[in-house]
Every structure is written in structure tokens, then in C-alpha cells.
Design a protein around this nucleic acid. Sequence first.
DNA 1: TCTTAAATATGACTTTTGTCATATTTTAAT
DNA 2: ATTAAAATATGACAAAAGTCATATTTAAGA
Lengths: 166, 166
Amino acid sequence: MTKVIFKTKNSFLSLLRIKYTYTMFSNSSKYAIKAVLFLAVNSSENHRIMGKDLAAPINVPQAYLAKLLQELSRGGIISSKKGPKGGFFLSKENALHTLMDVVNVIDGNDKFNSCLLSLEKCNADKPCPLHDLASPSRSKFIQSLNQNTIDEFSTQIEQGKVFLPL
Amino acid sequence: MTKVIFKTKNSFLSLLRIKYTYTMFSNSSKYAIKAVLFLAVNSSENHRIMGKDLAAPINVPQAYLAKLLQELSRGGIISSKKGPKGGFFLSKENALHTLMDVVNVIDGNDKFNSCLLSLEKCNADKPCPLHDLASPSRSKFIQSLNQNTIDEFSTQIEQGKVFLPL
DNA sequence: TCTTAAATATGACTTTTGTCATATTTTAAT
DNA sequence: ATTAAAATATGACAAAAGTCATATTTAAGA
Ligand code: FES
Ligand code: FES
């Protein structure tokens, strides 16, 4: 028997969210990336966006997002202005960061550099059984997380080549 | 100031283990995969291996591994025999399972089929900004998790093409 | 049959991650 | 100056993942 308790609107909504999938990103990082990219496309120095207006379009719990935005702001990934007419935005310099910078701020550094199975560094000379299956593409993926700027991603979005997910 | 308390030998050892890296596998799944592959190479119907003799060579905490082995056994991924001279082993049929079967038993099903960023299914028609970077290789990887049998992996290990990590 | 060696079941506990709420600080506008 | 609207700091709490320990069950061998 499944027991469900409805406490608040948010906890109800969270039932609809799919959690904990194997994507190498923590939920927090995913949320943060979505927020940053949304800001990249929709905000600017003089068009700031409030936390609560950001939460809905990217489908992230408002209170949780608030916390993430604060971490991103502290980490220099996004900019903000307090008070009335305040909000969050991406400066030109902010947009030069990479997505790896985003996850480093949210989840800490050095999460991507080890073997799929072992505790050692991934090593082509003594590959684990999954190395050849995963490693070439994996390192390419990690490389673009490290190299492509947020600005580049937002250009792709503006050109309609890729889409910002809910 | 870092405060470290040494409680037991195992909790000391666990300090040496690298935890929580972004590899799409949970620690439990990684441990389970290592255990299964080790059994595939080193055990047979009439050469069973005890839990405690398995823990050391694959560098997994003994008590934790015990629990995983029990789940794997219940899930039909590995075989076991109780009592003196008992232990764990892989039958011929066991070895026909895939690594995806292993992680399904340990972490539950349907962990691999969603977009890196969104809650929707990954969708080539409306790709998220990371889709093209990750998806082609990712689906190939997932496909071989689903198709290659444990037997095939163990052959590769026996041929010295790949190695079982600590 | 008794003893002993093994897996099994069960669950307590810890750490990490995810979630939500609230008091404080800053600043624009009146 | 005062007010109100925003971010910020802080932390309580919940859920999931990881870790460890112990009592029970099964079966081999004396
Ligand atoms: S050695 Fe395991 S992924 Fe490279
Ligand atoms: S749409 Fe996001 S990974 Fe495919």
C-alpha cells in the first residue's frame, strides 16, 4: 500500500518530478545548469530576473532554486542585485564560464576524473572492462564541459539548434 | 580543522576509498559489478568463494559486500551455497546476464533512459544543449550494458585485454 | 546427532543529497 | 526617512545511499 501525504503544493509537485537518474549530474547541478542557461538567454545587466520568476519556467522548486542561485552568485557564476527591481542576471564575463565551472561550484571539484569501476584514475594502459566502451566518448564529453562557454551554449539555443528543457 | 576519528579498521580503510564520482554508477552498483566479474573469472559451480575472500581482492568493505551479494543472489544474478564449504559462484546461466541486469537488481530499473538535464525522455527532435555532446556515445554505452553478457566480459579479462580493477 | 562454517535476514546507524522555511540585509521608490 | 521588494544567510528537516553488526538458517563433516 502506498501512503502519500500532501503537505504543501511544492511537495505535491515534487511527486511529478523524475528523480535520481543516471546522468552523471546531481540534481542540484542539473537545476543549476538549467538556471544558468535560462539566464544566459533571457536576462541581461539591465533585465534582471527574480528567483521566483525563474523557478517556474525551468520547473525547479522555488525554495531550492533560491539556494542554488545564492551559491552560484557567491561563486561568481551569475550576478545579482538586491532590493526592489533587483534579481539575477548574467554579465558578459559570467557568460564566459563553462558548464564545468557551474558544477564545480555546486558539487565541488574533481568529480569527473576517475575510472567507471575502480578507485584509480582511468588508465588506457590497464583498462577496466568498461573503459573502451565508455572512455573515448566520455572524455570528449568532459572536454566540452570544460571548454564550451555558457555564451556558446546560449547562442545555440537562440539559433534554435537546441532547446532548454523543462 | 579536520577532525578524524578512527573507529574500526574498516572505517579507516574507507578513508582511502574515493567516493562519489560522476560515473553514472552508484557505489553499490560498482561494487556489485566488480564482485560479479571477479566471480565470473575465479569461481565455478564446484569452486565457490566465500564473501570474506571476495571482499579483499576487489577492495570493497566486507560487511557491505555481504549485503550486496545477498541481493544479487536473491535476484538470480549469482548463485550460492550455504554451510561449510559453501560460498558464492557463477553458474553458466548466471554468466548469461548482462551488466544492466546487475545494476537493475542493485539500484532498481529504468535509471538510464532520460535526458541529461530535463525530466523528459531524451529526445533527438528536441535536444537539450547537452544532447549532441553526450547522447550518441551514451546510447552506445547503454546498449552494450544491455547486450554484452557477463560471460563475454570475463572472456575479455581472461584474454588479458581488460583488467579487473581494485 | 552435534558442531561448525557458511550464507541469509534484518535492522541500526551515518553521511550525503535534496527540500523547504524564515530572519536579515540591501536598495529603489515614495 | 520610511516602506516595500528583492537577494542573502542560515539552518531545520526529509529522503536516499552507504556502512556495519548481529541473530538466524542451512548444510557439511566428525
Ligand atoms: S579504466 Fe575504467 S573507465 Fe578507464
Ligand atoms: S535531450 Fe537531453 S540528453 Fe537528449
